[in-house]
Design a protein around this nucleic acid. Structure first.
Lengths: 141, 141
DNA sequence: GCTTGCTCCTCTAGTCGCTAGAGAATGTAG
DNA sequence: CTACATTCTCTAGCGACTAGAGGAGCAAGC
């Protein structure tokens, strides 16, 4: 079993890019790992787990501050998980809201694109709608 | 009829904030308007129309470069509108993709939140799922 | 005239979450 | 021993604003 891996291998295993790993260390999200004689970072399994946690959280759209809190919670398993739940619920509400507004946008854009007769700009529905918001009545944004 | 309005009024009418209007001027998206004796900007109706166009485009999620192109097209009504159509279609494709990925996220987050038994962090489904990506099998992200 | 309070001016720096690049050192394969 | 890859630190840039400092202009009330 390999005890620790250099940053490039950590990047490969976690799917987080090398400069991003260093960035996470810099902002204190990931603890500074031990260094080799030649001053290179070497990551233990626990670091890789933490990195995977961060990556998954980022994929789910949590911001750095939320992840910082979630990591602190993970480090203290005996605490109540209300905070974690609240953070996840807030993120869910945000996602739901975003889907709603993007769905309205989609309808708007479809109308624009369908309405385009592929002629001159002067008669182009795309430009026309952009210039006149009141032409989007059915979807408020 | 009022010939021209100061920046605050332009902001009110367009829904674009004052510093943002100045920013748009700075990056060359909005032409520099005439100034009063006391060096204040005064906007004509044509500027307000352009500002509305920009605002609506931003609401629909077009980036500044796309808007720059769209505005140039609007200024040249005799050109074919293929470019405008392409830009709108690209934006639509992007929106559709985003909705797809957010919908997957939503499912993931719902599972997490529903699974939380509101006990201790050590048994919290939210934290658990974040730590172990393989627990999200049904929705790839 | 004078003061109060609002609007406006320019300029710089900060936000978020990275990403890119310079320039140097270290490690590894042939 | 020589390539070449990987790593190091550090600074600057991205997009689209936003915030704040420090000062000037302007309209209304006294």
């Amino acid at each position: 079993m390999m005890r620790s891996v250099p940053i490039g291998e950590a990047a490969r295993q976690s799917g987080v890019k090398v400069p991003t790993i260093r960035y996470y260390e810099h902002i204190g999200l990931l603890p500074a790992p031990k260094r080799s004689e030649g001053n290179r970072r070497h990551y233990e399994t626990s670091d890789l787990r933490r990195l995977a946690f961060i990556r998954h959280s980022r994929e789910l759209g949590f911001d750095i501050e939320a992840i910082r809190t979630l990591l602190t919670l993970q480090d203290n398993p005996s605490q109540p998980c209300a905070t974690a739940d609240t953070i996840a619920q807030a993120r869910l509400a945000d996602v739901v809201q975003r889907i709603r507004s993007l769905t309205a946008l989609k309808a708007e854009l479809e109308l624009m694109v369908e309405g385009c007769r592929h002629g001159k700009v002067g008669e182009c529905r795309v430009i026309e709608v952009l210039a006149d918001h009141s032409q989007c009545e059915h979807a408020r944004h």
